[in-house]
C-alpha cells in the first residue's frame, strides 16, 4: 500500500495574549490509498484543527503551522502558495462539514454550487457541468435530480443537504475526502443512509477518507484504521478490530467504557474523572495523567512517546512502553 497523505510531526499553534497555544502538538498520521481513517477525540483534542491544517484553512493570525510536514502524494502542502493550494482544495482533497445547514450558500441554487466547482477545477463548459451536476445528485441518491438543481438549500432537510455536500465534494473525484463530524447533526436513520453512501462511494472511486468523529459507533462502522487524539497528541493508533478488541491506552479504555451499550446491560458507566485541560494548562508529563486511573510518578514527570506495540499498532503510554522495553 502506498501512502496518499502523510503528516509528520505536525504542529499547529495559536497565539492568544502572546501565549503560544499548542492545539495540535506533533501529530503523525498516514492515510493509504483507498483507506478510511477515523480521527477520534473529545472536544478540544485538536482533531478538527488537524483536518483544517491539512486543508490549510487555519485562520492566520492567530493560527500557524509552526512545524512539521503534510505530504500529499509526496508534495509538502505546508510550503505551497495560496494559488497552488486552491487547485488542490475541492479537487484532490475535498471536505464535508458537520453543519449541513450552514455550509451551503443559502442564496445560490443547489445546482449552481456544484457547477461552480466543476467549471473552476475541471474547466468544463456550463452545459457539461449541468449534466455532470445532475449525474452527481443522482449518484448520492436523489431521484428527481433534474428539478433539484434549481432549488435552494432551505427547501431541503438536513440529510438531503448533507447528501448535496457529498455530491459537491465528490464532483471532482477527489483522492482524499475529509469528513468532519459528517453525521453528528443528523438523526440516526439519516446517519445510516449517509454512512452507507460514503462507504459505497469510497469503494467505487477508490477515495481515501479521513473521518473525524467523537462517536465510536460510527468509527467501528466505517473505519479501517483509528487514530485517537487527546490534548493535541495522538495517544493511540490501531486497526479498527484491534482497537475495539483490546484498547491499550487508558484514555481509549475510558472512552469505550463511557458509552452505554445498545445490547445487554451495564450496571454503571465507567466515566473518566475530571475534564480535558485547556491547552494553556497542559500538564508537564503525560497529558492524560491527571485523569488516568493508572498514573504513577513517572507519568507526572515525563511525557511518554508514541511507541510501536506488537508490530502494528502504536500507543503513547508508559504502561505499554515499559513492558515493551523489558521484553
Amino acid at each position: 500500500m502506498t501512502a496518499l497523505l502523510e503528516l509528520r510531526n505536525l504542529k499547529t499553534h495559536f497565539k492568544r495574549d502572546k501565549i503560544d497555544i499548542p492545539a495540535v502538538d506533533g501529530v503523525d498520521l498516514t492515510i493509504n490509498k483507498g483507506e478510511t481513517v477515523a480521527l477520534v477525540g473529545e472536544s478540544g483534542s485538536g482533531k478538527s484543527i488537524t483536518s483544517l491544517s491539512i486543508m490549510r484553512l487555519i485562520p492566520s493570525p492567530p493560527g500557524k503551522i509552526v512545524d512539521g510536514a503534510i505530504l500529499f502524494n509526496g508534495n509538502d502542502l505546508v510550503n505551497l502558495t495560496e494559488d497552488d493550494m486552491c487547485k488542490i482544495r475541492g479537487n484532490d482533497i475535498s471536505m464535508i462539514f458537520q453543519e449541513p445547514m450552514t455550509s451551503l450558500n443559502p442564496v445560490l441554487t443547489v445546482g449552481e454550487q456544484i457547477i461552480e466547482v466543476l467549471m473552476y477545477h475541471q474547466k468544463l463548459s456550463r452545459a457539461a457541468s449541468i449534466n455532470k451536476a445532475v449525474e452527481m445528485l443522482e449518484m448520492v441518491g436523489f431521484s428527481r435530480a433534474k428539478a433539484l438543481i434549481n432549488e435552494y438549500p432551505h427547501r431541503l432537510s438536513g440529510g438531503m443537504r448533507q447528501r448535496v455536500m457529498i455530491a459537491i465534494a465528490m464532483s471532482c473525484n477527489p483522492k482524499l475526502l475529509i469528513a468532519d463530524e459528517p453525521t453528528t447533526a443528523l438523526d440516526v436513520t439519516i446517519q445510516a443512509q449517509i454512512l452507507d453512501l460514503m462507504k459505497e462511494l469510497s469503494v467505487k472511486y477508490d477515495t481515501s477518507i479521513l473521518i473525524i468523529t467523537h462517536d465510536l459507533g460510527v468509527v467501528s462502522e466505517v473505519a479501517d484504521k483509528v487514530v485517537v487524539m487527546y490534548c493535541g497528541q495522538v495517544v493511540e493508533e490501531a486497526l479498527v478490530d484491534d482497537l475495539f478488541d483490546e484498547p491499550l491506552h487508558p484514555y481509549t479504555i475510558g472512552l469505550m467504557g463511557s458509552i452505554p451499550s445498545l445490547e445487554g446491560e451495564t450496571d454503571r458507566l465507567q466515566s473518566i474523572e475530571g475534564t480535558v485541560p485547556p491547552p494553556e494548562h497542559f500538564p508537564i508529563g503525560c497529558r492524560f495523567a491527571p485523569r488516568c486511573p493508572h498514573a504513577f510518578d513517572r507519568c507526572r514527570a515525563e511525557a511518554p512517546k508514541l511507541v510501536e506495540v506488537a508490530g502494528r499498532r502504536k500507543v503513547r503510554c508508559f504502561l505499554h512502553s515499559d513492558k515493551e522495553a523489558t521484553v
Binding site: 446517519q191 462517536d215 459507533g217 468509527v219 475495539f244 458509552i259 451499550s261 445498545l262 445490547e263
Partner: peptide, 9 residues
C-alpha cells in the same frame, strides 16, 4: 434500533 452504529464488542 438497527440504524444505530454500535462499537464492535
Amino acid at each position: 434500533l438497527s440504524a444505530v452504529p454500535v462499537p464492535k464488542r
